[in-house]
Amino acid sequence: MGADEQTIEPPAERAAEAPEAATTTAGATTAAAATASLHKYPIAPGYRVNVRSGPGTSYRIVRTLPLGMKVPIYCQKPGERVTGPYGTSNLWCNIANGQFISDTYVYTGSDGYVAPRCD
């Protein structure tokens, strides 16, 4: 996978796709509150990463992440083995509905899973 292998969506779209809602102090449930509490991981410095529709470079490119982007990781799954700035791995991160990037382009502080496995 090259330096331009993955992508992410604008904050408004991410909020709409939060995996679970959070309850506000008033008791209202909002996806925005859930997204605000979700940890975001930085993409490797200097890389514009293509976001794929599945866990491999043969899947179509959905978009490309800009430099300096941070992404949520909702779940992870094995896929194509890829080498990137953070090593070689077959682990792919789901950053939005139907959007995956190689874990080798995301600084998670771990060589393994940091989120639940995708179904």
Rank of each mutant, 00 (worst) to 15 (best):
D103R: 14
A36N: 04
W92L: 04
V82M: 08
G87P: 05
L65W: 11
A3C: 06
V62D: 01
G109V: 02
G2T: 12
T7K: 03
A28N: 10
T35H: 11
A3W: 10
Q6H: 13
H39R: 10
G54P: 02
Y107N: 13
P42K: 07
G27N: 08
R81L: 05
D119I: 05
Q6W: 12
V51Q: 10
P116A: 08
I43T: 14
Y105P: 00
V114C: 08
P72T: 02
G46T: 01
A21W: 14
V51N: 12
Q76W: 02
R117P: 15
Q99H: 14
C93F: 08
T25R: 09
A21L: 15
Q6D: 07
G112S: 13
Y41W: 15
S37D: 02
A96C: 11
G98T: 14
A16M: 02
Q99E: 09
C93G: 06
Y41R: 08
A21S: 13
P10L: 04
G56D: 03
V51C: 08
C75N: 10
V71N: 15
V106G: 05
R14W: 04
Y74G: 01
D111Q: 09
G87N: 07
E17H: 09
Y107Q: 15
R60S: 06
G84L: 03
Y105E: 09
A18D: 06
A31K: 15
A22T: 03
D119G: 12
R48H: 07
K40F: 04
R52E: 00
A28S: 05
G54K: 11
A15V: 01
P45I: 05
A36P: 04
D4Y: 14
R52V: 00
A33S: 03
I8W: 11
A33N: 00
E80S: 02
I61K: 14
V62K: 06
V51L: 07
G98I: 14
T108S: 12
T30S: 08
G112F: 07
K70P: 15
I73H: 14
Y107M: 09
G2Y: 13
F100L: 04
V49W: 04
E13K: 10
V49C: 03
